[in-house]
Every structure is written in structure tokens, then in C-alpha cells.
């Protein structure tokens, strides 16, 4: 089994899936309210922004990199479009600008990592600070609220009984699953993560691919920022602080290796759901929010522990 790639990879995702099912079973025992439709929809809605952010990051992690700037990009895009909407610009135009701003910042990350060969951790950490600073200057400490109804529909509207952010997160998930699994670019990301030198010797355009995937990560972060702004009907510099490094946790819990070359988007969906359910069940059972970070930390350490142990076995 250890030498069959397909089997090994699907088993790994299966493990994450089992983890998710186990948490669902435990949660339904802990609280009768957990399995209520309204609560399940709440969970999906709460996980949607984290999921979208984490999906973009997944591609970067597949190449063996990391993008610490996505939360900052999401906040910056959120603040930018809120300002533009307030100035009366049309919604589609603002939407487009938001995506472009996110994408361009991501491409800068890609140039630092791909062309200038900087370590992704340092490059994107620096970018995070710069983007945060830009948000601070732009906002001058203000909170913008009262955005057009047509815009906030993206965050609070429903399609039937499904919240719009859930529909969007579903579509973005589908997009990334296909991108990683079914396209040439996706295959090249895995190869890059497994061995960059071999990728280069194999005539794969390593630099271009890196720039593109960091660009996609930035663009996705921008998209998440837009949806979050619509959902909050407000924008401020600290709007994405709640996510912290939960994005990285969602990716890792989903079975994508931080070393690159292994994992996928489906795992990240599971990872984001696990993280959201853990918070949800703590709220339902009335566990003090002071304890919540500890539980989250233990969940993250435990999943990675399982992964490391199963690797050592091999």
C-alpha cells in the first residue's frame, strides 16, 4: 500500500473524512441542537470565508510554500471596496477592482518567491505587514458601514434556504478541486512541491507557475474579503483578525503537507469544516470563549501528530 500513490492519497483524505465524521457524531451527542438544520446551515455559513481563504492557500502549500499575507489581503480588499462603494461606484466595477487588487498583491508575492527566490515565509510575512500598513493609512482608524443592499446580498442573501456565501464557497471549492486534480497547471504544482530542481530540468516553467499560484492565492483572498465585507456590512482594518493562522491549520488538518507535493482541495474543505464545528459545539455547550483557543490548539496539534506518526510508520 505504501508504494501506491493513488491509494495512499485517498486513504489520507479518508482519514480526514473519518475525523470529520467522528467530530460530528461526538458533537451530536454533546448537544441535541447540533444536528438541527438551522445549526448545520450556520456551520456552513461560518466556515465559508475561512474555507475560501484556505483554498487559495492550499495551492501555495502544495508547492512547498506558505502565504501568510492572505488575511491581510482580504482585509485590505474589504476596506478598499467599502471606500469605493461609499463613493458610489457601481457594484460590478468595485467587485472587479477588489479581485484585481488581491491578485496583484499575490503576484507581488509570487515575484518575491519565484523570481527573487526569497523564502516564502519571510516574503509573505513582510507583505502581510506592508498590506496591513496600507489598510491602516487608508482607513485612519475608521469603520465603514451601511453598504448598498444589492452588495450586502452577497453576504447575507439566500438562494432557496442556502446562504449565498455557502453557495460561493461551494463553487470555489469545486474550482480548486478541478484545478489541482484535473489540469496541467495543477499537476505541475504537485511536481514543483515534490522537487523544484527536477521540475526545472523537466522544462516546467517553475517561476511562472509560482507567480501564478501566489497570484491565485491573493485573488482568492480578495474574493474572501469581498464576501466578508458584504456579510458584515462593514469594513475595518482588523476585520480578518479572527482567522489568524486558522487558514494554515485548515490546510494542514485537511492532509496537505507543509513540505509540498501532497494533499488537495477536498482535504481543505474537511479541514475548514472541522475547525468550524469545534467552535460551534463549544458555543452550543456553553464552554467559555476563554477556553476555546486551548481546545483549538489541541485539535490542531493532535491532527498533525496523527499525520507525523502515520508517516513515521512508513
Amino acid at each position: 500500500m505504501r508504494d501506491n500513490y493513488i491509494l495512499k492519497n485517498s486513504l489520507k483524505q479518508l482519514f480526514s473524512l473519518f475525523g470529520l465524521i467522528a467530530i460530528i457524531i461526538i458533537s451530536s451527542i454533546l448537544s441535541p441542537r447540533f444536528l438541527k438544520i438551522e445549526n448545520l446551515i450556520t456551520i456552513l455559513r461560518q466556515s465559508s470565508i475561512l474555507l475560501i481563504l484556505s483554498l487559495g492557500l492550499t495551492g501555495v502549500v502544495l508547492t512547498g510554500g506558505i502565504d501568510l499575507s492572505i488575511s491581510a489581503i482580504a482585509a485590505f480588499v474589504g476596506c478598499t471596496i467599502a471606500q469605493l462603494l461609499k463613493s458610489g461606484m457601481s457594484i460590478p466595477l468595485v467587485f472587479g477592482i477588489g479581485l484585481i487588487v488581491g491578485g496583484v498583491i499575490g503576484i507581488f508575492n509570487g515575484i518575491l518567491v519565484g523570481k527573487l527566490k526569497m523564502p516564502p515565509f519571510v516574503a509573505t510575512y513582510g507583505m502581510m505587514m506592508v498590506v496591513n500598513g496600507l489598510s491602516l493609512i487608508m482607513m485612519q482608524g475608521a469603520v465603514i458601514y451601511g453598504l448598498p443592499k444589492k452588495f450586502t446580498w452577497l453576504g447575507v442573501g439566500y438562494m432557496g434556504s442556502i446562504p449565498i456565501p455557502v453557495v460561493l464557497a461551494f463553487l470555489v471549492s469545486l474550482f480548486f478541486i478541478i484545478l489541482f486534480r484535473k489540469t496541467v497547471f495543477g499537476a505541475e504544482l504537485y511536481i514543483l512541491g515534490a522537487n523544484k530542481t527536477a521540475a526545472r530540468y523537466s522544462s516546467i516553467p517553475v517561476d511562472k507557475n509560482l507567480i501564478l499560484i501566489y497570484g491565485i492565492s491573493g485573488l482568492t483572498a480578495g474574493f474572501a474579503g469581498i464576501i466578508l465585507t458584504a456579510r458584515l456590512d462593514a469594513a475595518e482594518v482588523a476585520m480578518t483578525d479572527v482567522f489568524g493562522l486558522q487558514t494554515v491549520a485548515a490546510v494542514v488538518i485537511g492532509g496537505t503537507s507543509l513540505l509540498g507535493g501532497e494533499g488537495g482541495a477536498f482535504g481543505t474543505v474537511i479541514g475548514a469544516l472541522i475547525l468550524t464545528i469545534v467552535v460551534n459545539i463549544m458555543n452550543l455547550t456553553g464552554i467559555s470563549s476563554f477556553f476555546q483557543p486551548i481546545v483549538m490548539g489541541v485539535v490542531i496539534i493532535f491532527t498533525v501528530f496523527i499525520d507525523v506518526v502515520s508517516k513515521r510508520r512508513q
Binding site: 499537476a187 511536481i191 515534490a194 530542481t197 521540475a199 516546467i204 507535493g261
Partner: peptide
Amino acid sequence: EQGLALSLPVALNIVMV
């Protein structure tokens, strides 16, 4: 170091280029 993506399957290595 330069030829193979060791952790990936044979098929993907063969079509790599």
C-alpha cells in the same frame, strides 16, 4: 535531485516533461 519527483507516482514522472 534533478531527475525525479520521488514522492509522486511513476506515471506523473513519465509525462512530466
